[in-house]
Design a protein around this nucleic acid. Structure first.
Length: 126
DNA sequence: AAACTGACGTGAT
DNA sequence: CATCACGCCAGTT
């Protein structure tokens, strides 16, 4: 199947991206209160394995004020907040997470304690 | 069109 | 623990 070019059909990576964004946001909303996931885990769970950067791209487009989606529950694989230290969103993310019981030790979160096991039974959604 | 830039991750040094 | 090289890929220069 080849990509189609033409006025009416822009069936290319852009469409795939929109689909991916949809899947990622949907999965993001399923993360239980007080739990965290890494970018790669979210990508994997959403059905886009190996696309951690895509998740980052999607989240970066989200308004940090949106309480509709728990964007704060996504941190990097090292258990650290990925947002730049100088960004006001950085401390905000930590504050939001701590408010839901997530513990930071030396600036890091333990996946052992707070990682979302996708197999968790009856997760308490917000 | 080519180079650069990330809210990334993993493996090697 | 710190760096680097890669793989990844949409957006921006």
């Amino acid at each position: 199947m080849s990509r189609v070019r033409g006025p009416k059909s822009a069936k290319t990576t852009a469409d795939a991206f929109q689909q991916a964004r949809k899947d990622i946001i949907a999965t993001l909303k399923r993360i239980p209160h007080g739990k965290v996931v890494s970018y790669s885990q979210l990508a994997y769970t959403a059905g886009w394995p190996g696309r951690a950067r895509l998740v980052a791209r999607v989240l970066s487009d989200l308004p940090t004020s949106a309480g509709s989606v728990p964007w704060q529950r996504v941190i990097n694989a090292q258990g650290r907040i990925a947002i730049a230290k100088d960004s006001p969103a950085h401390p905000l993310q930590q504050r939001l997470l701590e408010a839901e019981g997530v513990v930071f030790l030396n600036g890091r979160v333990s996946f052992e304690q707070h990682g979302w096991k996708t197999g968790d039974a009856s997760p308490l959604l917000d």
